[in-house]
């Protein structure tokens, strides 16, 4: 059992370019603006506080298995990502129910508003995860942090979400639930694993 750390990530400016990308709009074609996206960004700006919970576990490497502290896995993709790491941070982050409400509200305005608000939600939670990771890196100055890796990536089974939820007490800490079909709700949520290795090791 590891200590659970709770993190509040207050509203930050919404990355418009990122939201456009999630709305499958690589750029605003003729610079003429995109009123629905702008309206959604205005609706969400400053409204969404993301919350996260994380824990750190020691990794135990075995011949064909990896003990993550909260679960064991045979995933070779994760093993590759964590190669050289002796610890890993497991986190869950969510933009919460308020984001879901904004999306429903936008859908009621028009399908395009719905698409845009979905994209805004994705941009918000991704930005919050970036902020969380930056903060974790600051808090662990002697360690190198690997890019985050989520259940469902490569051969890491999505079913691991059940163990992730138990390990992070996601229901109580974040109000997150997992459906039988392994959907996280509220939907704008992320769980991921970040490998850590002492910086000295890499320098040598």
């Amino acid at each position: 059992m590891s200590t659970l750390h709770e993190v509040i990530l207050p509203p930050a400016p919404i990355r418009r370019e990122e939201a456009l990308r999630y709305a499958m709009q690589p750029r605003t074609a003729d610079g003429s603006g995109f009123p629905q996206m702008d309206a959604c960004i205005r609706m969400a700006e400053g409204k969404i506080t993301c919350r996260a919970v994380w824990r750190m576990d020691a990794l135990a490497w075995e011949a064909d298995r990896l003990d993550l502290g909260f679960a064991e896995t045979e995933s070779s993709a994760l093993r590759r990502r964590l190669d050289g790491c002796d610890r890993a941070i497991l986190f869950a982050a969510t933009a919460g129910m308020e984001m879901e409400r904004l999306i429903l509200r936008a859908k009621a305005i028009s399908p395009l508003h719905g698409l845009c608000m979905h994209a805004v939600g994705a941009a918000i939670i991704e930005e919050a995860c970036d902020r969380l990771c930056a903060r974790l890196a600051e808090e662990h100055p002697d360690d190198a942090l690997r890019p985050r890796f989520s259940p469902g990536y490569g051969d890491l089974p999505l079913a691991m979400q059940r163990e992730v939820f138990a390990a992070l007490d996601c229901g109580r800490k974040l109000g997150l639930t997992l459906t039988d079909t392994l959907l996280m709700q509220p939907g704008k949520s992320v769980t991921a694993i970040i490998g850590l290795s002492a910086k000295g090791d890499n320098d040598r």
Binding site: Q25, A29, Q36, M37, P111, L112, C116
Partner: peptide, 12 residues
């Protein structure tokens, strides 16, 4: 040459 949002704007 056009993307999903334009398609939807036109549809609306």
């Amino acid at each position: 040459t056009l993307f999903l949002p334009q398609l939807m704007m036109s549809a609306e």
